[in-house]
Write a protein that binds this DNA or RNA. Structure first.
Lengths: 135, 135
DNA sequence: TTTTTAGTTGTTATAATATAACACTATGTA
DNA sequence: TACATAGTGTTATATTATAACAACTAAAAA
């Protein structure tokens, strides 16, 4: 198996929740996830949050911090949730993961004025998506 | 009063809350703020959140999204809360606002692969601060 | 095989964060 | 004055997230 793409064998709950998020074109919130998986036997918030925590940890999903919502990672280069960038439309709330080599290199190499480098970052851009720009 | 050079004259509640955040070396959370200003007559969460919303809007403070906490802006160039960058220590939780001309220019001019530019961004770097690096 | 271990599960309860709705007040300005 | 805009005080409630504990499971070590 390719090291770069180590499979994390998801447990039942993790799989149910990942599949739901992965199918969704847009970020889902924890309690909306809960509502959607209750018929599959996941009844309590903690069951959802535990699966979310794990999925974030292994990089299968990302949290959109400014929205308290979760989106599947569609960027093969971020196997671990350490370097994330998103664009967020302030009207329709559409969220897109940005995968730009230039951006990720720039940020991974960024040093602050004390010369510190950082091991992780999260960047959220806000503006209007194409559709909303035209309205 | 002349609107052209309108200072944002803070109201009583806004001023109480801004002063508290401004004096704090580290970000404060809403309910910790509430606790600290109760002796000054601010008794309800909404009074705090309303002041916080306004202070964020006019750029006097910023919200650290990943921590649900608020910090005073010490970066004279961000008059409006539209371009923010922070470093966050994952051990001691120390937060520092980054003011790097290079970084802000790079991000302000960033275009995604559809050529879209964005009007605002928020960037949070995570790692260890100097003190915690030495431990 | 048995035992151990780390990780996950299911559950109840509760903490922490944030907003809705409504009546009222202050202030600037037409 | 009257109007518009923004802020206030209040109660209630919605939303997001974690604590604590007992039990289960799979994989690896003995």
């Amino acid at each position: 198996m390719n090291k770069m793409h180590k499979e994390h064998n998801l447990t039942k709950n993790q799989k149910i929740i990942f599949d739901l998020i992965d199918k969704s074109p847009q970020p889902l919130k924890a309690y909306s996830i809960l509502y959607n998986v209750q018929k599959k036997g996941i009844k309590a918030p903690l069951q959802v949050y535990r699966a979310l925590d794990k999925l974030v940890e292994i990089g299968k999903i990302h949290k959109i911090e400014s929205r308290n919502a979760f989106i599947a990672c569609h960027n093969s280069s971020c196997q671990v949730a350490k370097a994330t960038a998103f664009s967020i439309c302030e009207i329709c709330e559409k969220v897109t993961e940005i995968s730009s080599t230039g951006l990720s290199k720039y940020l991974a190499n960024f040093k602050d004025k004390d010369g510190m480098k950082y091991s992780k970052y999260n960047l959220e851009f806000f503006g209007l998506c194409k559709k909303c720009t035209l309205k």
